[in-house]
Design a protein around this nucleic acid. Structure first.
Lengths: 357, 357
DNA sequence: TTGAAAGCGCTAACAT
DNA sequence: ATGTTAGCGCTTTCAA
C-alpha cells in the first residue's frame, strides 16, 4: 500500500519545501498520486469515485496546489503552446489578430508564444528555432514571404494567417477579391473611371491577390487597365506607398483615384499628395485596405476595406486546434468577408474631369 | 559501461522514432548521456575533454539534435520564460515595449509570454494564473491598476513597466516630470498662459505622476491653477479625452491650450474640438504624451512627448533577468528621459487672446 | 575526465 | 475504483 496512509505532517508539506506537488495532495487525502491525478483531470475524472474526486479537488484547492505543467508536458509530450510568427507586431494589423488567437486558445488551455520576424529571413529562422526548442504543438504564421519552408519538415501543424501559399496549407484570409470589388464599384459610382493602383509587393499573397482582383474587377467593369495606372511597392509601407504614387503621378496616367495595397501605403499616398500640393479627396481619391486602428483619425479619415482581424485570428487558432486534435483540414482556405468603410478620402472627381499637377 | 558502445543502427535513431534525444547523440559518440549533456552545455563544457566536446557538438549538429527544453526545465525548475502582462496590446504604446523586452530576453535564451488583461481585473487574474501554471521565471507588468497584489505571494520576481507602485517594486518608467516640464515651457514660449489639463486616471501611476507634474510645473512657472482648468478621464482612452475636454470647455476656463494625459486622450480632444467647431491649433493647442505610432499622421500632426518605449522594454527585461540571476535591485525606479516632439497641434494663441465657443 | 544512479512531477499501461 | 510501476529527457550529485 502507498506509504502515505497516515500522514499530515506540519503544514501539509510532507515533502520538501518547494511548491505543492501532486504527491502532497495525494498524501493529504491518503491515496495514491495516480488517483489524485485522475481526480484532478477533467478527462479522467470518471475513472474515480465521486467521493474521492471531491475530496481530492477540495484538498487541492485548500492546499493551493497547482499542477506543474512542465512535468505534465514532459509526460504527455504536449506543451499546450502555439507559436505565432508575425512580421511586425507594431503593425496595427496584428494586435487584433493576436487577441483573436488568444481568445480561441485560452479556453483550450493553450498559450500563444508570439514572435516577431521583423521582416527579416534571418531573424525569422532564429525565432522559429527558438520556438521549436520550446516544443510548440502548432504554428500560426502571418509572415509575408511566399515559398518558405520554415515549418514543413514534418513538424507540428501550421495554419497561415492573412496569407496563403501554393501548396494548400490551411489558411485564413480576408476576402481580397470582394473588398476590391466593393472599392471599385464605390469609386465608379462616385464617377471615377481612371483608377490607379499602388500595389503591394507581389511576393506576398495579399499583395498579389489584391492586384489580381484589381485587374479582374477593372476588366469586368470595362474600365481602362493602362500600364501607367499601376505601380508596385516593394513592401507594405508608407514609404513604398509614397513612392508608388509619385511614380504614378509622374507617369501621367491622368487618374482621379488611387487604390493602395493597404492602409500604410495609402498613408504614403497622402504624403505624396501633400508634397505635390494635391488635395485628397478633391484632386485625387485614395482608398486603403485593412481598416487598421486609427484609419478614421488620419487626415482625411481613410476610406478603406475592413477585414475582420479579430475573427481571422480566432478562426486560425480554432483551425489549428482542430488539427492538433488530429482533424484533417476542411474547407481551405477559410475566406472571411470584407466590407468597404467609406470615410472622407473618397469623393466624386472634380468637375474638370481630371487632376492637374 | 554504458550500453551504447557499439551503435549506429539505421539512421542513427537507435531509440524510438520521435525527435532526437540526448541518448541518441551519446550513443552515436559512444559515451554516456551525462557526458554528452556536459559537452553540450556552455557552463559545463569545461568538465569535459576538448576532444569529446567537439565530437559531441559535431554529432549533435549532424544529427539535428535539439535539446528538449521541457525536460531541462523539469530538472532545473527553470522555464526560461517571462510573463508579460499588458492592459491592451492594441494600444500602440505596447508593441515597441514588447519588442524591447524580446530583444533583451532572446540573447539570454528566455522567451516572453505575452498576456492581455483587457483592463479587466477578472481577466487579469485568469491570465496571471495561466502563466503561473507555466512556471514563468519572472514577471513584467504594465497593467494599470495600482495596489494589486497579483504577484506578490512569494512568486518569482516582478518588474513594473511604465508604472510604479508605492512599495518600491522595481520599475522602469518614462520621465513624466521632465516631459511635462518641456511641454509647459513650450506652450509658455508660444505665449500661452492659461493651460488646461485633461488628466488621465489617477489610479494609474502615469496618470497621477503626470498630473502631479502639471501642478508642480504650473506652480513653479507662476501660472494659474484654477480648478476649472483640470478635468480627469476615467481611462486613457479617446472617449475619456473627448469627455474631459468637453467638460473643460463647458467649465469656461478660457484656456488657449490643453495638455492631455496621453495621445489617445489628445485624439479625443481633437474630436471634441471638431464637434464644437474649434480649430487646432488656431483656437486651442493640444499636446499629447507618448508619441505613439502614427501620432505624426493625425490631423493635425500631434505635438507630444516621446518616451523611449523600446528602451523601456529592454531595460525592464534586463532588470528582470538580473533579479532572476539573484541580483538585488539597484537604483529604483529606472527613469528614462522624455523628449518633447513639436508638430502642428501647437501654435501661438490667437490674437484675440482666447478662444470662443 | 567520465560513468552510474537518481529524480524533477507527472501520467498511462497494467494489474488488482 | 484504485494501486503499482515505469518512464518522458534531461541534469546533477557521487563515485571511480
Amino acid at each position: 500500500m502507498y506509504d502515505g496512509a497516515a500522514m499530515v505532517r506540519a503544514a501539509d508539506r510532507p515533502s520538501g519545501n518547494g511548491p505543492m506537488t501532486l504527491r502532497d495532495v495525494a498524501r493529504r487525502v491518503g491515496i495514491h498520486p495516480a488517483t489524485a491525478s485522475r481526480a484532478l483531470n477533467e478527462s479522467t475524472r470518471h475513472l474515480v469515485s465521486a467521493a474521492t474526486a471531491t475530496r481530492v479537488t477540495e484538498a487541492a484547492r485548500e492546499m493551493g496546489y497547482t499542477p506543474n505543467s512542465i512535468a505534465r508536458s514532459l509526460k504527455t509530450s504536449r506543451s499546450l503552446t502555439v507559436g505565432v510568427i508575425l512580421p511586425d507586431l507594431t503593425n496595427p494589423l496584428f494586435p487584433p489578430m493576436v487577441r483573436g488567437i488568444e481568445d480561441a486558445l485560452a479556453p483550450a488551455g493553450f498559450t500563444a508564444l508570439i514572435a516577431n520576424t521583423d521582416n527579416d529571413q534571418v531573424r525569422a529562422r532564429s525565432v522559429v528555432q527558438a520556438l521549436r526548442l520550446r516544443q510548440v504543438d502548432g504554428w500560426i504564421s502571418a509572415v509575408a514571404t511566399l515559398h518558405d519552408h520554415l515549418f514543413t519538415d514534418a513538424g507540428p501543424p501550421l495554419v497561415l494567417l492573412n496569407r496563403q501559399d501554393e501548396e494548400g496549407t490551411p489558411a485564413v484570409v480576408g476576402d481580397d477579391r470582394g473588398g476590391i470589388e466593393q472599392t471599385v464599384d464605390h469609386l465608379v459610382e462616385l464617377g471615377h473611371r481612371r483608377i490607379a493602383y499602388a500595389a503591394g509587393p507581389q511576393a506576398i499573397s495579399t499583395g498579389s491577390a489584391r492586384y489580381a482582383a484589381y485587374v479582374a474587377v477593372m476588366t469586368a467593369r470595362g474600365l481602362s487597365l493602362d500600364p501607367e495606372l499601376v505601380r508596385f511597392g516593394a513592401s507594405f509601407s508608407e514609404r513604398q506607398g509614397a513612392r508608388a504614387l509619385a511614380e504614378l503621378l509622374d507617369a501621367g496616367g491622368d487618374f482621379t483615384a488611387v487604390m493602395a495595397g493597404n492602409d500604410l501605403m495609402a498613408l504614403g499616398c497622402y504624403e505624396t499628395l501633400a508634397e505635390r500640393g494635391l488635395r485628397c479627396p478633391e484632386d485625387i481619391s485614395v482608398v486603403g485596405f485593412n481598416d487598421m486602428h486609427f484609419a478614421d483619425k488620419f487626415a482625411p479619415p481613410l476610406t478603406t476595406v475592413r477585414i475582420p482581424h479579430h475573427e481571422m485570428g480566432l478562426r486560425a487558432a480554432q483551425q489549428l486546434l482542430a488539427q492538433i486534435e488530429g482533424a484533417t483540414s476542411g474547407v481551405n482556405p477559410i475566406v472571411l468577408p470584407a466590407q468597404l468603410v467609406v470615410r472622407s478620402s473618397t469623393a466624386a472627381p472634380s468637375r474638370r474631369g481630371g487632376r492637374r499637377h
